[in-house]
Design a protein around this nucleic acid. Sequence first.
DNA 1: TAGGCCATCTGGTCCT
DNA 2: AGGACCAGATGGCCTA
Length: 237
Amino acid sequence: MAELKSLGGESYLALTQSYNQTAFAYSAVRSAGEAGGRVVYPGGAGGGLDFHHAAPLGKAAESSGEQSGDDDELLPFEGAKAGGGGGFERDGKLKAAGGGGAKKPKEQRSLRLSINARERRRMHDLNDALDGLRSVIPYAHSPSVRKLSKIATLLLAKNYILMQAQALEEMRRLVAYLNQGQTLSTPIPATLAPFGQAAAAVYPFPGAALPTCPEKCTAAFAGTTSSGLCKHCNEKP
DNA sequence: TAGGCCATCTGGTCCT
DNA sequence: AGGACCAGATGGCCTA
């Protein structure tokens, strides 16, 4: 994961933290993409997903159609990257004898090539979709940052979704609060003290939206008064 | 040179 | 039967 280390500190932290929070994003993806126990990916005839940024997917489907003619021509051991395990020997015979079906070797070979081409196309579509994902998640476009790996792309995207969901929830709560037209009758919580009465009035949910003081004291807001107390919360760091 | 990442091939399984 | 999906295997490329 070299590219993970080349990410900014924030994004890397966010990425690594995301290892522990998979349930939400996973269930969301499943509910969005699966139909009858089988994922219908947009390159196929059935369509299915209707993401906002559908361009790369559309392109994938298009390229699939274009490739379909040539792919069958690409022999397994002719491509530069055709490392592959097993497959056909150079004489064109199947390595694994595999059920000695009634099909002639020539038909078997043709079928195998067709299956290979289909699988290749499927993986290309998958990669196009991943490229589309890379293009819409933050921190992935800096020239100084190497292209995100597949796993990094997925983890960052998941974390980004969680972050957006949390922000949305905060906005909802804020709107609900403002709609109530309440005045603040309680004292300003310690966590909001550094931001003043106005901030406390606007942000009545300190636990959810603002970092707790221990976090502030040990991270970006580090700093103490002459008495050794955190200058933001007036508590010992 | 080791390790990470990737593309490709392959056989198996499940679904339509 | 054919197609989609998946996981394992293999080899190439790149970087520390």
